[in-house]
Amino acid sequence: MAMFSQNPLVNGPNYSISDMPRVNAPEGAREHRFDPYTDNGGSTLAIAGADFTVMAGDTRLTSGYSINSRHHPKLFKIGGTTADQKDATIVLSVVGFAADGEALKERLDAICKMYRYRHGKPMSVKACAQRLSTILYQKRFFPYYAYAILGGLDEEGKGAVYSYDPVGSYEREQCRAGGAAASLIMPFLDNQVNFKNQYIPHSGEGHALLERERRPLARHEVETLVKDAFDGAVERHIEVGDGLQMMIITKEGIEEVLLPLKKD
């Protein structure tokens, strides 16, 4: 009886090495010990002026304590007709996980090119901004780990800056810092661009104290501000440094500037 009970046709295989399929794991399931994300450091910054927008980012690429590259741009011209993007009007900055940033840039650029091809006109910043939000939200449950800022000129020719979180929440702002040193740069910007906590001396006591009048900054002022902000960030954050890439968007086109930062 015992011998016949080994019949595989009746009871199934019961030897020490079993070919039994695993039943306790769902089909195609995998254990995910692999972490698909890293942080590649770096910082970005954008300030909108009356008739221009300045975008900036450092050019260091890190992983952990290592510097992978001293020249890795975070600013990209978007939606030009050629590979060198010389007729582009929009700039995207990405910081966070570099591979996702690159993928995001290529998606947005391809979409802007398709828009131009289909409609015979370049995409407006407003439309591009909404589309970027959609792209990010489409990957809501496996997000692009990238903090994006989009800059350009709006329909009236005024500077426009749109800032995003990794899943696509966005708003138009006067200025925004992103990435590793965002928490160092943003308060400086609040004070220097939006004149927060600046009062006219001896203008009154307590609540009667008058705020300093807000005015749009000139282009040269903004450029100095950006350089100062990054020089400050470089001193206090190890993932920021090497080079400062700046793009100034005006109605004449996009000007690119490269300045040195501390390499330590």
Partner: peptide
């Protein structure tokens, strides 16, 4: 496939659960 293996009628059925790693597939994850 039964040759050279402990016979079930002598030793009892082998508890194959020792050989099963429970949980999902882990190959090429490291």
């Amino acid at each position: 496939q039964a040759w050279g293996r402990p016979r079930d009628d002598v030793y009892g059925a082998y508890d194959a659960s020792y050989l099963q790693t429970s949980g999902p597939k882990t190959a090429t994850q490291s």
